[in-house]
């Protein structure tokens, strides 16, 4: 298989004229990957009236935007989006295609990967370009798709050596968003939308969104609880401390599964990735999936009854003790200092 194309594409997810944060984060990462490959970074934008989105993409280092603009594409639907993206991939053979691991990305990416017989790795926590020897064969400049797997006890590096386009999804917040130092001149390739009856196979009857009230990503202080809290009542202490410190409360996946917190407050590989000034992990053992979502916090306090819990290995302050005992004391100590 002769690979000549070195383009890195990012699927830009948008709603009502605003690009998703994760897409801009992926452009920032995509710029680095494209530089390593010495190839171009392209933003793939489908929607209606998306000119301003294309302009915004350029501030994140895009070389060119590929735009399909049509009323039929105003709201995401699997059929037209997957058809158009797949056709473009098969026609242009980009080397890399990245999607945000959002509901849309997780609906679209696998369908496209199947259609184009590409490999796809979900929820990567890191992406790198490296020369690889696999089964005694050399593959120059492959995309290393790195993610925790199997309960977080291993970190797997996945490659797709024999597919033309290497695809991956990444959760919001995992890659850092930064603007390009010197943006490239605005250059858009507009592709006309040609309707296909298949596009109308599923219709949107109604759509309803609420502004996301929870914004963990921008909270300076996060107090997170895990399964170790045992009860919902204990979790109230987590909320109380968060409120007192002027921060947000959050939970590990186990806390979400146990019903202590709602999924939008889940920190970790399959939740949100955060980098607050202070992260307090209470009753969280610290599996790699959770650490992947918070280890870059400035200061980490771990409270756990198990002195061998992995969370202590990345903590700056460690408190061994039961949350139901430690938390009231901590809340009390803080209140006393405020007086």
């Amino acid at each position: 298989m002769e690979i000549t194309n070195k383009e890195v594409w990012v699927f830009i997810e948008q709603r009502s004229g605003v690009p998703a944060d994760v897409s801009l984060e992926l452009l920032s990462k995509g710029r680095k990957l494209a530089d390593t490959l010495q190839g171009e970074l392209k933003a793939l934008i489908l929607g209606h009236n998306v000119q301003s989105i294309a302009e915004k993409a350029f501030t994140y280092g895009v070389d060119e935007a590929i735009v399909i603009d049509a009323l039929a594409l105003e709201h995401y639907r699997t059929a037209p989006y997957s058809r158009l993206v797949s056709n473009l991939i098969l026609e242009r053979n980009p080397r890399i295609l990245l999607f945000g691991a959002t509901v849309i990305g997780r609906d679209l990416a696998p369908y496209v990967a199947s259609k184009t017989k590409s490999g796809l790795t979900a929820d990567c926590t890191d992406l790198k370009i490296e020369d690889v020897v696999y089964l005694k064969k050399s593959y120059p400049q492959l995309l290393l798709q790195i993610r925790p797997a199997f309960g977080g006890n291993i970190i797997a590096t996945i490659i797709t050596p024999d597919t033309v386009t290497q695809m991956a999804t990444v959760r919001e917040g995992v890659m850092e968003m930064h603007k390009a130092d010197s943006p490239k001149p605005f250059k858009v390739e507009s592709i006309p939308y040609e309707a296909d009856p298949i596009d109308e196979i599923v219709q949107i009857i109604e759509q309803h969104r609420e502004e996301n009230k929870v914004n963990l990503k921008s909270a300076p202080i996060i107090v997170a609880g895990g399964y170790g809290l045992s009860t919902k009542d204990n979790f109230k202490l987590v909320k109380e401390l968060a409120h007192l410190l002027g921060g947000e409360f959050a939970g590990s996946r186990a806390a979400v599964d146990a019903g202590f917190v709602t999924p939008e407050r889940q920190v970790g590989q399959t939740g949100v990735t955060v980098r607050p000034k202070l992260y307090i992990a209470i009753g969280i053992s610290g599996a790699i999936q959770h650490r992947a979502g918070m280890q870059e916090s400035q200061k980490i306090i771990a409270i756990n009854s198990d002195p061998d819990a992995p969370i202590f290995s990345i903590a700056h302050y460690g408190i061994v003790g039961d949350a139901s005992d430690v938390l009231p004391k901590l809340i009390e100590a803080y209140k006393n200092k405020l007086k």
């Binding site: 690889v132 797997a149 970190i155 590096t157 992995p310 302050y317 408190i319 005992d325 430690v326 004391k329």
Partner: peptide
């Protein structure tokens, strides 16, 4: 198409965190 190129067991470095005693003095 996806191949596992490399698997690393997660090895935890022993933590260099500061130990806080779970009592009034330590927490203050």
């Amino acid at each position: 198409p996806t191949k596992v190129h490399n698997v690393e067991s997660v090895v935890l470095a022993s933590g260099s965190h500061k130990k806080i005693e779970p009592n009034k003095d330590g927490l203050t």
